[in-house]
């Protein structure tokens, strides 16, 4: 599979029984990118949003609850780790599970915020993320049914995976990563806690790049 144009060279393979993670030039790039953002989330202090009081010159800084901050940081790091797993996974079902984990932790990042609009958007996003697992698992299982295997190593370059399974996978990732519908996402990023909230964008960007690699490879 490593002679395909999109993958680049094989650098490293990590074997976990039937699931063999691989690090090609492409996935390693994504992996390093995700690692950099995890480090940022660990070391950065959150931004402090300022509000202007209407009609006056007064400006005040929003207080960020300590509990909330720690929880957001925990979820952001968990989301980063899930992204690491998703970009290096060598198995279709394992990839979809990691993507589902990204969807859940994304909601967790903003769930502690005490703002009705943010919570409303997060709720709608949560419903979409939940529905999207149908397509993720459905795509993986159709690939299993028609090809007899889930391992990307076996499927690579043969073009066996039917178009329907690929469409299902992409739509599933669209739901989890929330990519083309930015409506709720813009609403969600109104939540305070900038470096952690940004993890939502980074993870969805990276799983999108990964799913494109998968559907071009298999």
């Amino acid at each position: 599979m490593f002679n395909l144009p999109i993958e680049g060279e094989e650098l490293f393979a990590l074997e976990f029984g039937d699931i063999v993670n691989y690090f090609s030039l492409y996935t390693t790039t994504l992996f390093l990118f995700a690692t950099a953002f995890i480090i940022i989330a660990i070391i950065a202090r959150p931004e402090r949003q300022t509000d202007i009081v209407f009609g006056t010159d007064a400006v005040y800084t929003k207080e960020i609850n300590q509990d909330n901050l720690r929880f957001q940081r925990f979820m952001a790091i968990a989301c980063g780790l899930a992204t690491l797993g998703a970009v290096s996974s060598g198995d279709l079902f394992n990839f979809s599970l990691f993507t589902a984990l990204i969807g859940i932790t994304n909601i967790g990042i903003v769930a502690g915020v005490n703002n009705r609009y943010v919570l409303n958007a997060a709720y709608n996003y949560g419903i979409v993320a939940m529905v999207a697992t149908t397509f993720l698992f459905g795509g993986a299982s159709i690939a299993l049914g028609t090809c007899g295997t889930l391992s990307i190593w076996e499927l690579a370059g043969k073009g066996l995976v039917p178009l329907a399974a690929k469409m299902f996978l992409v739509l599933g990732v669209m739901g989890e990563g929330m990519a083309p519908f930015y409506i709720a996402k813009a609403e969600i990023t109104r939540a305070p806690g900038a470096p952690y909230v940004l993890m939502i964008h980074v993870s969805s960007l990276l799983i999108f790049l990964r799913v494109i690699e998968i559907i071009l490879t298999v």
Partner: peptide
């Protein structure tokens, strides 16, 4: 697959109550 569904349901229900 089942566990993913159940855990998301748990979380969303709590989020709904909070919302």
């Amino acid at each position: 697959g089942l566990v993913v569904g159940i855990s998301e349901l748990l979380m969303l229900a709590e989020l709904y109550i909070r919302k």
